[in-house]
Nucleic acid binder design. Structure first.
Lengths: 138, 138
DNA sequence: ATTGACGTTGACGTTAACGTCAATTATCAT
DNA sequence: ATGATAATTGACGTTAACGTCAACGTCAAT
């Protein structure tokens, strides 16, 4: 037998749970929790979880979803849109509907964010001005 | 004495808690909770809460903050930036710092949202195309 | 005086998204 | 073989943001 080391053949692109945790600045607990919620389905090497770049990608999407303010179940729905789920015509219509609903929410959110940003920028300007004014010129 | 009806003089611009609740599609419980968290400070007519347009404005800001994904304490900090809080130079620097931190978060969030929107729009296009394709032309 | 409709204050319940142990198991270097 | 190190599975704790329910006050209309 001339295998390099038994089972491990080629793909070196795997991650342990703590590697991912470190990379994304979260805890292993959180990652396991996402799995509990069916947002991740890592492989197993015996009992240990093995994450592939596919899983890493999904984790990235999960975290982006969180930053956007989505709940984990929201994120679950969105992730479902990405995998080979091209079902019946009815399913497609449903998916399309949900996507559009979410788009509406996102656009509203974007609008809100733009407003808050504008106000905060304005506030910062005013404070800066005020501070310049009251600066005792040396 | 020729008063119109004792204490009530001119300002007709007040709201009851359930009026506000109805207008904004939330519950009175929520509004009272915001008060508990010092996000609102309505007047009182005896024991009953009386909201002025100022309070209504703050409530609007609170709800926008929520849509953006802020926690109530985040929102509290942001509201604090709006009232006559023009304190010492030190305070101003602090406020300015916090505002800029929050701006950074908001810009990141805006970025994330734009990405998700783009992907979802793309997904919708693909689904639409697919559905047109499989449409049996009548 | 009574009946609703609305308002008030507790106080406890609930859900989401993990944190925080504890008890085990596997791995790896010494 | 032996710790040290990292991983696993429960199980219970925690925080935020209200929901829900009970018990009570109030005010206008009947």
């Amino acid at each position: 037998m001339s295998g390099p080391k038994e089972a491990q053949q080629a793909a070196e692109l795997t991650y342990t749970i703590s590697e991912l945790a470190a990379e994304f600045g979260i805890t292993a607990r959180a990652i396991r929790f996402y799995e509990d919620q069916d947002l991740l389905q890592p492989e197993r090497d015996g009992i240990k979880r093995v994450y592939l770049r596919r899983d890493r990608g999904r984790l990235k999407l999960i975290l982006r979803g969180k930053r956007v303010g989505f709940s984990l179940s929201d994120i679950g729905e969105m992730l479902a849109l990405y995998d080979p789920n091209n079902e019946s015509r009815e399913q497609l219509k449903l998916t399309l509907g949900k996507s559009r609903d979410r788009l509406a929410i996102l656009r509203r959110q974007r609008q809100d964010i733009d407003e808050v940003i504008a106000e905060l920028e304005d506030g910062c300007r005013q404070i800066s001005d005020l501070m310049e004014t009251q600066t005792e010129t040396s």
